[in-house]
Each structure stands twice: as C-alpha cells, then as structure tokens.
Design a binder for these strands. Structure first.
Lengths: 339, 339
DNA sequence: TTGCGGCATGGTATCGATACCATTTTGATG
DNA sequence: CATCAAAATGGTATCGATACCATGCCGCAA
C-alpha cells in the first residue's frame, strides 16, 4: 500500500530516491542497503553487488543530512579566508587559492567537505556545523584567531610559525628562506646585501631574521630598508633611494620580501643604467608566475602552497580525531634564475 | 525520569544542547523553541525574548543536519573551481578569489553556505547535497560544464557570455572592453593599432571582436598578433617582433589581452628605446595590482569581479527559487593611467 | 537426527528540528 | 457574566540513514 505523504511540506519535486526505495527494489531491508552502500563485510558480496548496481543505475545519492544527523557529525571543515582589499595586506596574488587547492584535495580525499567563509561577516558563531576550522589570511596574530578559537573547534592557522604560539600553525620556513638567500649572496661573493620589506609583518620579520643571521655568520651585516608598501612602485622607490647614495656603499645584492617589490627594484636598477645581475643581483619571494615570465627571469624563493594546503587539512583532521598535533614549517627552495 | 541513551553511538562528548533542552529550561515545548528561534510571529514576544536569551546564554547552536533533513533542503551551493597549474590557463592571479569573495558575501547574506570543490576530482556525483552549482574557471566551453549539467541542478557559469549559449553565464563585457580601448586609441589619434593575445580563448576573441568592430567603424583595421602564452615574456617577445618591422608600419598603440602581456610589451618597447605613451601607448586588461603599481602605471580595463561574484550567487539562488534567469554581462571600465 | 556456532538479514528506535492539527488561554464584546 | 474569536502553545508524526539487538538459515560435529 503506497503511503500518501502525510506532511504537506513540498509536494512539488518527484522526491529523490531513498534507501527505502532501493530496499524495495532489491527485495531487502533498508538496513541492508545501508550496509551495502557502506561496503560492510556483513552483507553477502552477491547482495552487495546487486544493491550497488541498482544504486548506480538509478543514480541514487545519499541524503547527507540524514546521515550526518544519525552519525552526529557533519564531515565538514570550515575555511575562513580573510579577503581584504589587497592594497594594505601582503595577501596579494593567488596564494590563498593555491592553499585552497591543496586543502580541497586532501579533505575530499578523506570524505570531508569544505565550507568556505569570508572574514568579517556578521555571523557570530562558527560556520554552520563545521567540525574544524582552517584560518587563512592574517596568521596567528590577528583578531580572527581569537574569535575562531572561541568556537572551541579544532583550529589550524596558516601563517608564521613561532615556538611560543599556542596555536597550531602551518607556514613556510621564512627563516630558512631568508638564510638561503643569504647563502646565495655569499656564494656570489656579494658584500653589501640589503633587505626590502616591512618587518611589521611576522613573515617578513622571520625572513629578515634568517637572512641576517646567516650573513652575520659570515661577518656581514645587511642594510635594512623598511618599506611599508608591497607594490612594484614601492620597490622602485626604495631602490631609487639606495641607488642615489655613494657608489661605495651602494648595495650589490637585494633581497625583496616579495616578487612585486623585487620587480620594482629591478626596474629602478635598469633605469639607473646598471646591469642585473652583474652590478646588482636581486632575489624575490613567492615565485609568482609574473616573476618567472619576466626578462630577466626573477630569482626567487618558492613555497609549495599546494602542499601547505594539504598539510593544513591533514592537521585539522588529526585534531578532530583527537591526536596531538604540532605546528609545522614547510621547506622552501630558492629558485635560481637570471636576476 | 532521565532517559539513558539507548544508542551507544558516541558516549564521549558531553552532547551539545538541543531544542528539547532549551524547552525544558524555558518550561515550554520544543516546538515553541523552534518557532522562537525562527522568529515566528506565532510566539509571544515575551516568550520569544526569554528563549532567545537562554539560547544565547548557553551558546545554543542549532543542528543543521536535523534542520536540513526535516526541511528537505541543504541551503548549500557548490562552487566548482577549475584550478589548473597556472602556466597554461589565463586563470592567473587572484581573480577566482575575488569572485569567491562576492559569492560568499551574497550567499551568506541569504543564509546559504558555500561548498568548495576543486575540478578534476574523482567524485562522480555533484558535491554532497548542494542545491545549486556555480562553475568557475573554464567558462561555458569546457568539459566541466557538461558534467555539471548532468547533475540536473541549477547551474551558473562564469565566462564569456554569448547569445547562443544555453547556459546561464555571467561574465564581463569583453566586447565592450575591447571597444572602449579602441575608442581610447582613436581619441589619441593613433592609426596603427595592434592586438596581442590568443583568440582560442573565447574571452579574448570577444575582446578582439569589440576592439576591431569599433576600429572598423572609424576606418581602421587592427593588426592581430596571435600569441599563445599569457606571460610577460610572451608579451615582450611579441612586441620585439613588431618593433623589428619597418618604422612606417610599426604599431603606435597596443592592446594586450591581459596585464601581464602588456607589462612585457612595455618592457620591450622601453628596451628598444621608444617612449611610453608618446611613441606607443599600451593598454592591458584585468587591472591587476601589479599593473597599477608599475612605472609607468598601466592603463587597463577594469572588471569588478567582486560584483560578478554577487551576481553569480544571486542568479543561482533565483534559479533555485524557480525563477527564469538570463545570462548577464558585467560592465567594464577603462582605467586610464600613464601608459 | 539433534544441537550449535557463525553468517546473512530484518525490526525497531533514534538522531534533532519542524509541519500539521489540536488544545488551551487570552481578551473583547453583548 | 457568558460567549466567541483570536492568540499562544503543545502533541505527534515525520524527514532518511544507521546502531542495537534479534531472528532465520546454513553447515558441521556428535
């Protein structure tokens, strides 16, 4: 006897297939269908195959809400991205997108979904039903961290890794990147290295720290140009200032805290009539497509952001499963090109 | 009598607050709590306030799965992003991220969540439980569209808008952008315009079409340099080729299909010893931060991607509500700077 | 033939929120 | 004070999938 729908909620749709429907078709009970779909060993292979076949044939899609309700879980991770206008933050370029790629890959592989939220929303609570949170954008220093932490959910942050930070942070090895650049300069025999960038940002501070430490080990002290902006224009301006000085004290090696500034610096140097890399060598950071396509191709520090995303995802999942998780630094690699 | 949990699923957690709990605390029935939380007019203001107060005080968070199950909806939109390695596709930069920003804003405002998926996953079906799909990345031409369409869900695509396309597409007015650049060149009195870009991409083809049509109306015919790559290097190379030709036929105005190529072209022109914009004027497309920060600052065509995201979101929601929806072109605007 | 362990499967209750319909309460008017 | 409409609230069933426990069935040893 076909049951009329006693609840008149939405009589429009033809009502999607349920496990009960499949069960009727296969001549088994709903619970058996459930087991078959979960590939449980408690169902005979023959039955299982038949049911799975039927499911595929009729395009059965499981109702996630029902499953999640029964299982008391959502299989969902929230990713919060602080998307700010671009001018003020170093969050230029597609870097969050690369991270997202890695996160997506790892989460979907684990059967989880990714719920995206933008920062500064009016929602007071955590994104609906998320089991964990990944925070992208302003590192472990910003206000968003505190807010996210208040939700009492497993939290992982992308940013600058520091030992005394209580959060689980994944970030690239900024210090190591700086050191690698320093080593490169030393190999090239440069003696008047210079750093361009704003130390107010934790990441830049780390890069400079690594850079300086390595130089000091070799008896050198870098010149620091604290430049607040992140644009090519900022790079040019800063560089022009340096070039104006006495030839004897003029830098012969410039480490810019990102590719944009490095490109600006290169422009200024060439306009000034000096050659790259003969007179001055320039190294950037980020390995953007832009720097790679330039003439001369930019030497830069590459961070594998996709891999970073994978790591972030893996760590939230581990925290959800109750494992202890530590912060981690991604190795970076200096890509030597023409500058 | 306190009920023991008959099902021994997960005895660990302290079990989150439910409406029934709130109901007990407030001395009302669960259904009243439900109404109060939904701000229904069927509950006395006094009661409503009391219940909402309790909820806030105890940090009550509604179980989304249960709600969605009962309501037969998920309040979730899937966003598919075709994230490809970057070298080959024009999807450079942060443009999908800007779109995502707009989408997020509009969806969360409407009480919907955004489920992010990366392209080329092994998942055969639509993202779990989504009510609609937004496709970002390869426009209405790629393979992903067909796949997404097979899911029978309301679908909206970002890409090149064309009249004969059966899909709902949102994209910027590429043709209009091209025309605007043409008008600019004509205003400046240029007579030998040139277009740099790969017409294999629908968007570029549109830009060229608009550019050419407007020039033709003024008795001019643009030179087309079909360049397959999208990098600055490609821009330089193409430009060097043009500069090598006879001075009489050398272009005096270059429209590059994106900012990167425009920048490359500018580099080549300056290396060649010509001045910008006196000898040759250059216009890009996209209005990236990069072009804006350059010296000389790049004149370019700006598209409001954030607004585009809002539009995409709005259209899926409309389709979900059963409204007829048409494709739409976003207006673009030429930003005149120094090049 | 009888008894028993193990495998395959089914019945029933449950996750938490909400629609439908019923019931109680309130307020207003004759 | 009685009567009735409107307002406020509650009981019960339900969304779809799954955990627990029970049952039916098989073959094999005694």
């Amino acid at each position: 006897m076909s049951k009329e729908r006693p609840v008149g909620d939405k009589p429009e749709q033809p009502r999607r297939l349920t496990m009960a429907d499949l069960a009727r078709m296969a001549g088994v009970s709903p619970i058996t269908v459930s087991r078959a779909m979960a590939d449980s060993p408690r169902v005979h292979e023959r039955t299982k195959a038949r049911i799975q076949g039927l499911a595929r044939e009729h395009g059965y899609a499981m109702n996630v809400s029902a499953r999640n309700l029964r299982l008391r879980q959502s299989h969902t991770i929230a990713v919060l991205v602080e998307m700010t206008p671009s001018a003020e933050r170093p969050m230029s370029g597609s870097y969050p997108l690369d991270l997202l790629g890695g996160i997506t890959q790892e989460l979907t592989a684990a059967g989880y979904s990714l719920l995206l939220s933008a920062g500064h929303e009016s929602t007071p609570g955590p994104p609906r039903g998320a089991e964990g949170v990944i925070l992208l954008g302003q590192g472990a220093g910003g206000a968003a961290v505190g807010e996210a932490e208040a939700w009492r959910l497993p939290l992982v942050v992308w940013g600058a890794v520091s030992a005394d930070d209580p959060h689980v942070v994944v970030g690239s090895d900024n210090r190591g990147g700086g050191a690698a650049v320093a080593r490169r300069f030393i190999e090239l025999g440069r003696t008047r290295p210079c750093f361009l960038g704003d130390l107010a940002y934790q990441e830049n501070a780390e890069r400079f720290a690594g850079f300086r430490a390595e130089l000091n080990r070799n008896g050198l002290e870098p010149l620091l140009v604290n430049q607040a902006d992140f644009t090519t224009r900022a790079g040019s301006d800063a560089m022009r200032g340096l070039l104006a000085s006495d030839e004897r004290s003029r830098p012969d090696a410039v480490f810019a805290c990102n590719d944009l500034m490095a490109i600006g610096a290169i422009q200024a140097i060439r306009e000034f009539g000096l050659s790259i890399p003969d007179h001055i060598t320039v190294v950037g950071y980020d390995d953007t497509a832009l720097g790679a396509g330039m003439v001369p191709a930019l030497t830069t520090v590459h961070q594998d952001l996709y891999q970073g995303g994978i790591l972030l995802a893996r760590k939230v999942l581990q925290r959800i499963h109750g494992d202890e998780v530590e912060s981690e630094m991604m190795p970076v690699e200096i890509v030597i090109r023409e500058s």
